[in-house]
Amino acid sequence: MIDDFAKEYLHSDLREIREAMLRKLDGLSEYDIRRPLTSTGTNLLGLVKHLATWEARYFGEVFGRPFPEAVPERGTDLWATEHETRGEITGFYQRVWAHSDATIAALDVDAPGHVPWWPRPDVKLFNVLVHILTETNRHAGHADILREQLDGTVDAPGKDAAFWEARRAEIDRAARTAARL
């Protein structure tokens, strides 16, 4: 029964990282969750909107189970307009989770799907689970860095500001020493 184990293992990790993504918004102002923090405009709320959009497409369209709401167009999914609220976007993401979770529960891990934008478009649920988990984790890493830039918050239980100050000093010493060699 490795198939059932693999499916549940991947799905469990996906559920955990989704929640972590939303925690990145906690305690921040509207401006801070939306403001562009890189030269390409990457921002926290935009990452959440992007993940919601693509999870809806992958666990919807790909398996003939379209998400029942409008999904943002390509190119509009990485940022929030001034008319979109935090609650609307996070609510959209949570509704996508419910839809995706229903798709994952209903299908076997080897259920066929079709991703027309992939070079090898015929896939299994397993492929999509791995892809979405990978992408969500990748963007959660981006969100970790953005959040740290905004207010120094690091999602590392048991590590306080003194720990990170000492760690940064140690790394800086190593970098300076290496530069002299």
Rank of each mutant, 00 (worst) to 15 (best):
I2R: 13
I2P: 15
D4T: 13
F5H: 14
L10D: 11
L10I: 15
S12G: 14
E19F: 12
A20H: 08
M21K: 06
R23W: 11
R23F: 10
L25F: 04
G27Q: 02
G27D: 06
Y31C: 12
D32P: 03
I33G: 05
I33W: 05
R34M: 09
L37D: 06
L37F: 09
T40I: 11
G41Y: 10
T42W: 00
T42N: 09
G46H: 00
K49I: 07
H50F: 03
A52K: 00
E55M: 03
Y58G: 08
F63I: 08
R65H: 15
E69I: 01
A70S: 14
E73Q: 10
E73V: 06
G75M: 05
T76R: 13
A80R: 00
A80V: 09
A80H: 01
A80L: 04
A80N: 06
T81E: 04
R86M: 08
E88Y: 01
E88T: 03
E88G: 07
E88V: 00
I89S: 01
R95E: 02
H99N: 02
D101I: 00
I104N: 04
A105P: 00
A106D: 13
L107E: 06
D108S: 15
D108V: 03
V115K: 10
W117R: 09
W117P: 07
P119V: 07
P119L: 05
R120F: 14
D122W: 13
I132W: 02
T134L: 12
E135W: 07
E135S: 05
N137T: 09
R138V: 05
R138D: 06
H139I: 11
G141C: 03
A156T: 09
A156H: 04
A156P: 01
D160T: 07
A161H: 07
F163N: 00
F163R: 00
W164I: 02
W164V: 01
E165M: 12
E165C: 05
A166W: 04
A169I: 06
A169Q: 13
D172F: 10
A174S: 10
T177S: 13
A179Q: 09
R180Y: 07
R180K: 13
